[in-house]
Structure formats: structure tokens, C-alpha cells
Design a protein around this nucleic acid. Structure first.
Lengths: 178, 178
DNA sequence: AATTACATGTAAGCGGTTACATGATTGT
DNA sequence: ACAATCATGTAACCGCTTACATGTAATT
């Protein structure tokens, strides 16, 4: 269901877009929040159209279909945001490795934690680059595009910083008891 | 694949266990790290047995099957921990709401963020209770059971604290521009 | 005798990934 | 001509959720 919501959100922000455009968005701006490939997006848009949440406003070159959100779609998005309690079904590979790592000998445990640390560091650099890009870039044509996604990006950066700090502390702790 | 890994980890920590025992673990100790119901666990154990990763060591009362990890299973677990880069396929409902919340009017946005905040607060209380329980409880029979899972619990607590702090700041920011 | 907890399974369906498949337009 | 990018779709498969289904042992 959440893919549908993400699509409605993007259509609200962009005004209108094709499946191709939306797929590109999932590779870029929304990537750290939700992921979806085109093979999932196209059928979902078709279903949403038959449910009356979006309409094909126009068909451009190369069979390009331009979707727009309907009033019904806006209502559905609003209802989800206001009414849906996000109980993310705790399923994190990082947390699983954190859970299992004490089963290893100290040097191996340290190696795993250091890889986790390195991974976080790379991700942090990416997100911070995105942040500075967003905040130094001139305002693009579309109205809502500037601030949209900033709260989520902030959350992502904090998340990554936290994992980095945790990994440092975990390495120290594991090494202390060897 | 990660369910398999989680099961191997638990069997390593516990020495041996039935599917029922493992399902209970997924409701309790591992819950904040990975989730799985019995309808997923039983077939997976059967597959793992036919793959030689575990064996049915004994059959107890009520058809209870007691599984033990094999050398092959231990090797698989070790390989995953050392070799698998955890690229959690960023799919978080909290982050999605964070992303979309700027589309709402200020009072509604604040309401959503406050619900997120309240949710985090409840979760934090639960995890902290688990932490103090673990650290004040007398050491149980099994050897490895005490420290096992502490790193992950620490990660979960930090994670929840971070979301709480983020929600506070997000509320302030959204209210500032109204 | 009835209820609860123990204990194991199967089946339908959904969401998501990977791979397959096709064709139009633009740039070199 | 050739390659890259634009653009849309389908099919097989896997992991997970929900619901269905069955039976045993202990407690009240």
C-alpha cells in the first residue's frame, strides 16, 4: 500500500508526471526513504487509474503517459498520512548483524563492525552532499520542490550519524572484553 | 535469506531449540531486530534440515522437534556475517511520512509528527525496560544468553531516541514557518 | 469437562525483485 | 549506422502475512 502512497505524494509535489519520471524519482530523491523499480511502478499506476486515484491527462511522445492525481487520490493520501500509524515491521539487516556479532571471536566481530562503520560513513557523505546541493541550488521551476523531502533527508542523516557513533562505541566495547 | 541467518544465530546461542521455541524468541528477544511468524519458521526449518544446516536431534512430547545447528550451518552463519554487506533496502514508513508531511497544512503536519513522537516515546520506554531487566536479572542457565543481543538493543534504543529528537525538532520547524 | 498453552503444519494472496521483451527518439 | 536514453510493459520467483487446520498435554 505504501508504494501507492509514495506515488500519490510525488504526483502531488510534481503536479503531473509519467511512470518513467516517477521511476527516476525513486532512484534519486526518494531513494533513501522508499524504493521501487519500474516493473512495480507501471502496473501500480494502472491499478491506481482504474481505482480513480489518478488519471492519464495526456499521452506524449514515445507512448509517454502523463499522470495527474485526482481529488480522490488527494483524499486517499491525506487519509493515510493522518490515519496510518507507521509500524515499520522491524526488519533491519544492520540490526540483525548487531544482534549476531557477539557470536564471533573478537577480531572477526571487530571486522564486521568496522565494515558497518565504513558503510555508514560512505552513506553519510552521500546524504550530506545531497543536503548541501539542495540548500545551495537555485530554486527550480516547480513550486513545492525545494522544501519537499527536507525533513526526511534530515532524518536520514541523523540515522546514519547515529549508526556511525554506535559502531564506534560497539567496536570499543567488543575490544575491551578480549 | 536473513530469516535463515537469524534462525542459525538463535540455534547457536541456545544450543538447540524447537520451532516453537524459536517462534517465541521472535516474539520477544529478537522482535526489535527481525520478525517472523511460525508459518514462516516451520517450513524454513524443514528446508534448512534438507540443506544440511540443521538436524532434528530429538523428538519430544507433542511432536516437538528439537533442532541443532550443524557444522555446515555454523559455516553458513559465519560466512554471512563476515561476507554480507547489509544494504537494507531503505523502506521505512516513518521516513515516508517524514517525506510527505510537508504536503499537509501546518496543524495537520504537526498532528502527524506528534503521533510519530508519541509512538517513539512508547517504544523507547519498552526498550529501556528490556534493558534494565536484562542488566538487573540474575544470569540464566544458558551460557551465551546474557550479553547476546545487547549491542542490538543498544542500537534500537539509540535509534528510537534519535527519532524522538528528530520529531521534536521537526515540529518546531514546521510550526516556525506558519 | 473446559480452557489454556504447547506444537506443527498448509494455502491463498500480496508486495517486491530480477529477468525478459519491445519499440521510439536523439545524439554521435 | 550505432549507441544511448527514453518509455512501457509482462512473467517467474521469492519472502512474508493472514487465515485455515489439526492434535496433544497441563491446568482449573
Amino acid at each position: 500500500m505504501s508504494l501507492r502512497i509514495a506515488l500519490l505524494g510525488l504526483l502531488t509535489a510534481y503536479g503531473s508526471a509519467s511512470g518513467y519520471d516517477l521511476a527516476k524519482s525513486f532512484e534519486k530523491s526518494v531513494a533513501h526513504v522508499w524504493q521501487a523499480g519500474h516493473s512495480q511502478i507501471y502496473p501500480e499506476l494502472a491499478k491506481m487509474a482504474s481505482d480513480g486515484l489518478v488519471t492519464v491527462e495526456a499521452e506524449g511522445a514515445r507512448g509517454r503517459k502523463i499522470y495527474t492525481i485526482t481529488a480522490e487520490g488527494r483524499a486517499e493520501l491525506r487519509e493515510w498520512l493522518l490515519g496510518h500509524d507507521p509500524t515499520g515491521p522491524a526488519r533491519s539487516e544492520v540490526a540483525l548483524q548487531a544482534f549476531l556479532v557477539p557470536l564471533l571471536e573478537t577480531p572477526e566481530a571487530v571486522a564486521v563492525l568496522e565494515r558497518l562503520r565504513a558503510h555508514s560513513e560512505r552513506k553519510l557523505a552521500q546524504l550530506e552532499a545531497l543536503w548541501t546541493a539542495k540548500h545551495s541550488a537555485p530554486i527550480p521551476e516547480g513550486t513545492a520542490r525545494v522544501k519537499f523531502g527536507n525533513l526526511a533527508l534530515d532524518l536520514g542523516i541523523r540515522q546514519t550519524r547515529m549508526v556511525l557513533q554506535w559502531a564506534d562505541d560497539a567496536i570499543a566495547e567488543v575490544q575491551a572484553r578480549s
